[in-house]
Nucleic acid binder design. Sequence first.
DNA 1: ATGCCCTATGATATAGGA
Length: 253
Amino acid sequence: MKIVTWNINSVRARLERLVEYLRTRSPDVLCLQELKCTDDQFPFAEVQALGYRAEVFGQKTYNGVALLSKLPVTDVAKNFGDGDEQARVIAGTVNGVRIVGLYAPNGQSLGSEQYAYKLQWYGKLSRWLSAQPRGPLLVCGDFNVAPEDLDTYDPRIFAGQTLFTPQERAAWRSMVDANHLVDLFRARAPTQTGLFSWWDYRAGAFKKNQGLRIDHVLVSADLVPRCTSTEVDRQAREGKLPSDHAPVEASFD
DNA sequence: ATGCCCTATGATATAGGA
């Protein structure tokens, strides 16, 4: 089973790329973030034509997440059930694996309302995950946190900035540890540099591989030995009008 | 470099992204 997370940065602006991706990479499950559209604006017909059902949690202008699957999906959940109006989390069970696709808040700048919301949101995520049913669990998405210095091309440039502050890293780490999750890509490549999932649109950052690793696949321990491959599809970041994120892919037996 | 780019919006500048 191939499970992918991809911050597509507007599903409507990127529809052709989405179709191309599904056709060529053929994931079993694709978690999408930053749909930037409402449910009724989602391209259901186009993905259904390729054999995917779509569970969609849209929002006007900002955020929005979806879970596309070739296989049946049960027990769909959206957000944490706390009345948060920002569409950031969608979950479903596929083939016995509880899959959570999420779009963590960006945090904007230190001391901003968004930054406080981000830290609070991580606490809610951690508690909500702890309440999930036992069994294989995979939590993927755009976490907007680069966990280690290794996850940026130059830690000096990013020191103290959002996505890198000690508070954000601690919030991320505490959520991972409290739920006994494994950062799958880092676990399989503990010292690899240049392993990124996002590159700034500006200044030819992708060409220079000046990126960040902020999209992650976190799994329960039972899924680690079942993982057969992990890959960042850098091809999807190339060419004309790409998302600034690449799909992050993991396959399991 | 306070810059670069991209998206959505009752839009023609602004907010948000990371």
